[in-house]
Design a binder for these strands. Sequence first.
DNA 1: CTGAAAGCGCTTACAG
DNA 2: CTGAAAGCGCTTACAG
Lengths: 365, 365
Amino acid sequence: MVGEQRQATMADVAREAGVSVSTVSRALRGVPTVTPETRSRVERAARDMSFALSRSASSLVTGKTRRVAVLMPGLARAPWFLGTTLTGIAGVLGEAELDLLVYVVTNKAERAAFFDRLPARHNADALMVVSFILTQEERERLDELGVPVVFVSQHAPGRAGVYVDDAEAARKGTQHLLNLGHRRIAHIQSAVVESFAWSAHDRLAGYRQALEDAGVPCDDALVVRAEYSREGLREGIGSLLSLLQMPTAVFVETDEMAFEVLSILRSCGIEVPGRMSVLGFDDHSLAEALDLSTIAQSPRDTGRIAAELVSSILADPSGDPARQVVLPTHLIPRGSTAPPPRNRQAEAAAAGRPGEPSDVPADDS
Amino acid sequence: MVGEQRQATMADVAREAGVSVSTVSRALRGVPTVTPETRSRVERAARDMSFALSRSASSLVTGKTRRVAVLMPGLARAPWFLGTTLTGIAGVLGEAELDLLVYVVTNKAERAAFFDRLPARHNADALMVVSFILTQEERERLDELGVPVVFVSQHAPGRAGVYVDDAEAARKGTQHLLNLGHRRIAHIQSAVVESFAWSAHDRLAGYRQALEDAGVPCDDALVVRAEYSREGLREGIGSLLSLLQMPTAVFVETDEMAFEVLSILRSCGIEVPGRMSVLGFDDHSLAEALDLSTIAQSPRDTGRIAAELVSSILADPSGDPARQVVLPTHLIPRGSTAPPPRNRQAEAAAAGRPGEPSDVPADDS
DNA sequence: CTGAAAGCGCTTACAG
DNA sequence: CTGAAAGCGCTTACAG
């Protein structure tokens, strides 16, 4: 049986120290008007009785909870990314002695419930929204919270946020592939499930931009949406491998997906980078081990800086309510990208085929 | 500017619905004595004013917070495992409408601070401790919390917990390697940093047990502690590759470490499983892609079941305070384990060398 | 510098 | 079935 003895209250400490509860409260919070002797007497009594402040009670009067809520999609979908972000957040909040309340939402029903009940209300001094594309209504609903909201790993116009420029990062990555000499460059992104979305949209835009800038026609058949699973990716790759003109490189939305792509390509005898270059996004902790070229971002820094933003907003609510921080990304070239095989390149040049081979109707006769 | 209008209180709702606050409280909590008409009038008023209950206020009187605290090491060290566990926990708590408070502790100082201040006190109705080996004092300190503590992914004698039998799992894995014909089997575990530890101890014990049962002498030179980093593992592997009698198989404490091991071995031309079999532990989401043989456990289930245990203890505190659930593990044979190369095996048999070659003193002359 | 008193927003006996 | 009142453990003006 656990010792369920009553927790000491301020009244107990006050009695022990021979002062009033007001004085205990002031002494423990470090209010400067308290005499050093009184303070130390109170502190000793508090320690002796292993007194712990009831946050419920102080919250009730101050209106502050000293808690920050974090809303995030199921970690299962991108454990490394979200887990690392969360670690960054937790470190900073811990230092600021702010508690961390986590709301994980994995499907449409949970999502609706969250925005309907708004459980964070009265329960947190700020909300951090990680990797969530919100609808207009959802965003407005969050305003009713009456607490600052900071967007993490996403850009919400006019709202405080910390994120990377996904479009620019994807553009740089695609440019790397172009610079290597690739012209048929595919893009694999995760199919959006249950109205969740990561940075798929911006990364696709950056990819398109790079091709356009280089005067390379965008072939829609080269853009594949795959389910976030091994089988989903196998299907996606299948569609690329059955094109009339196969790509020589593929830019994958995330490293975790790219790892699967590497594995699938190799399992069917397509050498990487010999026959196909693969470029990821994230610089996942395993990217080096798998020799995956990628575009690096630091979710840990993203989380850390977002949490610092939160704690600065809390400390000084008069500041700009829509501060935005854009974090850098950079290309990390490794062994999974290389120039395209010469023969294919020559062959493509010789054939001089215009794009869109998938538009050619099949002849049944 | 965010609309900072005052949040509606029960008094506001009471006025609007033309009843007393007591009635509002009862209606909203579903106390059966309330008339259906009264209830619906109150509910409508609450909805119209988008009333949200202040948990601080109700906690203060009920003594319950409707929050569960989770203590875990930095996710950075094992993001997949801890992230997946957390997802399992979050799902169940969310359904039970319990909030999830996360305390991440990444170093000795934070650890000391956590146990010194015990911030979860007065702040949560239960504590879940994930993958943490506690000292005697720390465990006793947790008893002062006065709330149920459930240990997740670890076995604490006499305490409630959900975990796998690591020793038995490791024994099975090692037996698999023995069954393939391996006799020189190495084990790589993570060096314990800052007094954190996972299941390193039990897995090592299981490995030793299997060898002993098979009558294969345990060679301490085959047990390597490596830092949890690529460079640390490279060093650890280096020590194995420079032994007089190289191992033909290696059992690695976790899949994430095993991925690095695969990569390092291949980078130095040692084929897996041709010259070296590699066995992991976890069945990480990428293990299939990397064709890694491993011992599967389900951190998601562990988290889920632990959270169910917590919510059942909260619902009925009269139950056994030390309920334990042992979850199953199973070997998943994949392409990274195979019988040892025949020549080596024969060579070793012919030489008939006793173990401990590392004990032979170097001759300086 | 310290204390007495009011009050934060709820829940819960206690009456009626 | 509903209301008035007390009280949960703090903080904060207000006196002194």
